[in-house]
Design a protein around this nucleic acid. Structure first.
Lengths: 236, 236
DNA sequence: CCAAAAGTGTTGCCTATACACCCATGT
DNA sequence: ACATGGGTGTATAGGCAACACTTTTGG
């Protein structure tokens, strides 16, 4: 049995996603040093001795790229292939982070946003992590209220539609988006309206998300218990 | 910045679940040594230097508890609270493992199966891991074909019903279970029938699962792309 | 012929998408 | 008045749970 005293180095990495200019983008920094110098890398760093992985990724995002206004952070998966980095053996815990579209965090020189659909050359296995993050976001848009984490505090339905379309990668109808979210009780009207654009048109009503935290709004489709309302259960 | 040379020890743990005597059970071993001596613990061990976490957990289950016939293994989450163990700082990657009900793996002396609903005193945070595993299994029973991993190779609908009921924790109707799985194409008849019990009755048809691997069978309910059949997409 | 177990038909409810139509504003 | 964008009504389709009913066996 090989239970030697091998302690493995552990890093935390986050794919921080935001809808910018109607496109889903991810925050990357360009590596200066080898290995993989010049390639683009996810923010993160080594796990500290007195923190759990979620504290760690939040700390590192705050310190290194000054992203403090994360609306949602969620663990994705462990990436642990022995050769995932050529230099060291390093296990990574990957996260999905979301930033609402109305904030524009100040990021360092070597850091910038990149459309998720057109990633540059990424370091190590970071491309796979970004794709995992996008997949998770897309899935949760369908059955949770996670829209609150990508949208600004108040919005019109068309604005919300552009956010959902950007994140999902295909056009969604404002009509049906409104209905689905309304029926589930995810949206609530603020009572205010937004002024029309230069071309006129009916002023749009403003909405906000009713809840501030993640909730499962669509109980899984089938095999639910006989009667009882299992709706809005906790997130797995 | 605290990027010291701290390497964190890393273990892999699995909640191995099986339906036994119509109850969902988990495999635990009783700790002999401190800390938490006498308490029940999940199988697993330290991550080796040349393996990824999934290889590691499969190796450890094979070595330590002789469980080789896993029908499904899936990563759950990282447990990394600094004080999750009183002795060492140790990060754990937790897995869900499934064993089909017709196999009875030989397990060591200090190891035994326990109903998930009535766990004994567990070591460290292992109770939380078991609950996470159960939650994941329950969710996936609803929207994937994961039943293949808990059921024997061939079965009647009533047998399948008892498996689903045990795993879900509530009674499901054989009628509707059959219909749901049939419509989705996850079940296929073998053509054979099982002999009736002592009380008589119509002989039950035998079925098997059509696919051997995990598939998402129920595309998420809403916000799907305009038309195209996105069914049976890959698992996130 | 009766009891028991398996499987099917039918109904009612709910949710979703698509599309036509009405509403409110600027020019 | 008309163009423009916002919002609602309605039709259609489909999935699911509940339950009555039919089928097939043993006694």
């Amino acid at each position: 049995m090989s239970d030697s005293i091998t302690a493995v180095e552990h890093e935390v990495l986050a794919a921080v996603l935001q809808v910018r200019t109607h496109v889903l983008q991810v925050l990357l920094w360009q590596r200066a040093r080898k290995p993989d110098a010049g390639r683009w890398s996810l923010p993160g760093g080594r796990l500290g001795p007195d923190e759990d992985v979620e504290h760690s990724i939040r700390r590192q995002l705050a310190e290194k790229v000054d992203v403090r206004q994360l609306s949602h952070v969620e663990q994705l998966s462990v990436f642990s292939a022995p050769d995932r980095r050529p230099d060291t053996r390093m296990v990574a815990t990957a996260f999905l982070g979301l930033v609402p579209s109305h904030v524009d965090p100040a990021v360092p020189e070597d850091t910038s946003w990149h459309p998720v659909d057109r990633l540059p050359e990424t370091a190590f296995d970071h491309r796979a992590i970004v794709e995992r993050a996008r997949g998770r976001l897309r899935a949760k848009l369908s059955y949770t209220n996670i829209g609150f984490a990508i949208a600004p505090p108040e919005f019109t339905i068309s604005e919300l539609r552009t956010h959902y379309s950007a994140a999902l990668g295909y056009t969604v109808s404002a009509t049906n988006l409104q209905r689905v979210l309304a029926r589930r009780g995810v949206l609530e009207p603020t009572g205010e309206t937004a002024p029309p654009g230069r071309a006129g048109g009916r002023p749009a009503a403003l909405f906000r998300f009713a809840a501030g935290g993640l909730e499962v709004t669509d109980q899984f489709a089938v095999l639910r218990p006989p009667a009882g309302p299992y709706a809005h259960s906790s997130v797995r």
